[in-house]
Amino acid sequence: MTDLILHHYPTSPFSEKVRIAFGLKKLGWKSVTIPNIMPKPDLMPLTGGYRKTPVMQIGADIYCDTQLIMLEIEKHAPTPPLLPPGKEGEARALAMWIDRNIFWAAVGIVMGAIGDKLPEAFHKDRSEFSGRSFEPAKLKAAAPIAAQQTYAQLVLAEEMLGDGRAYLLGAAPSLADCALYNPVWFIKERLGGGKAVPPLDRLPRLTAWSERMKAIGSGNPTEMSAADALAVAKAAKPAACSVDAADPSGLKAGQKISITPDDTGKVPVTGTLVGLTPDHISISRNDERVGDIVVHFPRAGFIVTPA
């Protein structure tokens, strides 16, 4: 099997969502540490401008956004499943809710507490990335509202665990658990040194759940340099993919398109359409540092326009 290469940095919460999936499946993987702010000169040749973290690479195929990264991990290592049989839709729907709602509320808590300790370059980068102010005073002022919203939504997860189940969808962890561990881990690690802090201290079942998740670990990572990852891409050929000619979008194979996130990091990536399914969309690109590559995105949460 071709190596799974994760481009990430240690404090990235969405990277933790992927790392815990590696742990669940007991996978070996290559770890490329990238900067936590722009510029990211050794990542851009792979993504064509997509700047979010993490990015997963398999040879000359580049996977953007954890929605799609997790599905690709599932393809490469189906057991134990991230998508429990019969509950695939539930797992993915819960993950989308968590990523789009709970995560940003949790960010508000963390940034309100530590924003004034972060460098000015970080504030500038995240303001440009998110389209909202990351000025320390504004972050601190908004933190109480973020705490209320985080608590109100985490209570729902607490209630899901109320019947004694060990994980959100039953006896085994799933994609939904990996997604929820992302913001819970972020709050605990950045503010509590691994311990439960408000509002987690009011949620005993969720706190116990988070300890079970933490025990899963991160699989077996091996460090890889960015230069070596670029060399892997250049030496490889992208996997074959195809375009559904009956897709309701009307998009056609060979069409030049741009793909842009609809929430944050709104940098368009342009290429030739080579893959289209209900789950994802793929474009071919060429960069002198990596040659021919294919960049893959999820359909949900991304805007596709003619280039």
Rank of each mutant, 00 (worst) to 15 (best):
D163F: 01
L161M: 04
A147D: 13
Q255T: 07
T33A: 06
C178G: 07
L27S: 01
A77I: 13
D244F: 04
A143L: 06
V55I: 04
L46M: 15
K256P: 15
G193D: 11
I73L: 15
M96F: 03
K17N: 08
G49H: 05
W97T: 02
A233N: 10
S31P: 13
I102E: 14
T33H: 11
T53F: 02
E88I: 01
P306D: 05
L206V: 13
Q255R: 01
R100K: 00
M160F: 03
T53C: 14
K237C: 14
K87E: 12
P306N: 03
R285M: 11
A93T: 07
S31H: 10
D116A: 05
V107L: 06
H76A: 12
A307R: 13
T53Q: 01
G86L: 07
I216Y: 01
K256A: 15
S31V: 11
L24H: 10
L230I: 09
R289S: 03
E288C: 06
E16Q: 15
V55F: 05
Y181C: 12
M213N: 00
L161Y: 00
F14T: 04
P173H: 04
L156C: 05
T66P: 14
T47I: 10
K256V: 14
T79L: 14
D3S: 15
L43S: 09
M56H: 00
L118D: 06
V55M: 05
F129C: 03
D116I: 00
I187P: 08
H123A: 04
V294S: 03
I281G: 14
D99N: 12
L169V: 04
V55C: 04
V184T: 05
I62S: 12
P238K: 08
D201F: 02
T2P: 15
K117E: 11
D287H: 12
P221C: 12
R165Y: 09
T277E: 03
E128I: 15
L203Q: 10
D177M: 06
K140Y: 08
K30W: 03
G275A: 02
F103M: 12
V110G: 01
T11E: 13
G28S: 13
A245E: 10
G49W: 06
P173T: 10
E90W: 03
P261N: 04
E135L: 13
A106N: 03
F302I: 00
F302S: 02
L154K: 00
A166L: 09
S174G: 12
R126Q: 08
M44E: 06
